[in-house]
Design a protein around this nucleic acid. Sequence first.
DNA 1: TAAAATATTAAGGCATGGCTAACATTAAAG
DNA 2: CTTTAATGTTAGCCATGCCTTAATATTTTA
Lengths: 161, 161
Amino acid sequence: MHGITDNLSSKMEDYLETIFILKKETGVARVGEIAKSLKVKSSSVNSAVNFLKEHGLVIHEKYGYVRLTKEGDRIASEVKSKHDIFFRFLTEFLMLDPKKAEKEACSIEHAISKETFQRLTKLFKFLEDGFKEGKPRILEKFEIYLKTGKRKKCEREKSCR
Amino acid sequence: MHGITDNLSSKMEDYLETIFILKKETGVARVGEIAKSLKVKSSSVNSAVNFLKEHGLVIHEKYGYVRLTKEGDRIASEVKSKHDIFFRFLTEFLMLDPKKAEKEACSIEHAISKETFQRLTKLFKFLEDGFKEGKPRILEKFEIYLKTGKRKKCEREKSCR
DNA sequence: TAAAATATTAAGGCATGGCTAACATTAAAG
DNA sequence: CTTTAATGTTAGCCATGCCTTAATATTTTA
């Protein structure tokens, strides 16, 4: 279905992600900025952009801005989301040092599956809701939540294990 | 301190891990078995083994068994432990399909830090202990546990949030 | 002790991804 | 407007990593 799209190298994912972030932060992505972000030379960016263009992930006219196609944007935001959720997991859940977590998220973002991403997202949602509603018998409740999509309050009378 | 040791490529880590596992399962690791495990040719294993030997991670005499040095064993078991803990996390915590989890653990094992590994290990220990003792106000308790190394019972009277 | 199985070496291929240097285009400043 | 500075592009090249085949060497086994 997606051709090369789901076989993209980490580096290419990094390029997409960088373009995505620059666009969000500054409105546009230019070759020079991408290069600066990734600490490579402009010529390297150029090769990458050509590659991504050939695969329908970016739009780029000579000397112009680099923009993501719909598909490119989908992939980029997916990578970014994986990064973010894992960063959250590392810092909020495992309570790791944010600086280390940030670095680590950069490698893990390329390694985790969509499904893991989705589960982590649900986990956080579950925790947030759980804390609002009452005590989180976290694992049990999360399991139920995953299975049924619903949450169950913690019955006071039970052993509350 | 460790030279190349902490800059080992994923592939080299895979070789070490495979040797580690074969040794545990069958008593010895032979070139052919490593090749079969990793689905590469023996000659590829040979190059890898030479590389690892040069870096003091394996011991290998021509036509003999491949054995891990102390350092090689340390790294291998570290990788394997990362694999295992992440597999547990994916299956027990996020409740992912074991087959997918197994595959995913294979990539993540190379990407997670020692510290993340340690925290995950503690998380599981914490959960196990928590379930024995009483209810796990998981996040709060885990945070205390990480900070102090001790666990705190869930007070019934409090809102039990 | 010859055949089969296994291991090693040598040579090379290919993918990835970076670089420099020369050139082209665009933007800015006089 | 035109020169200069900044930016982008292209071409050619190189390093790394990791795999392969084919030829050779050693060990095992029948």
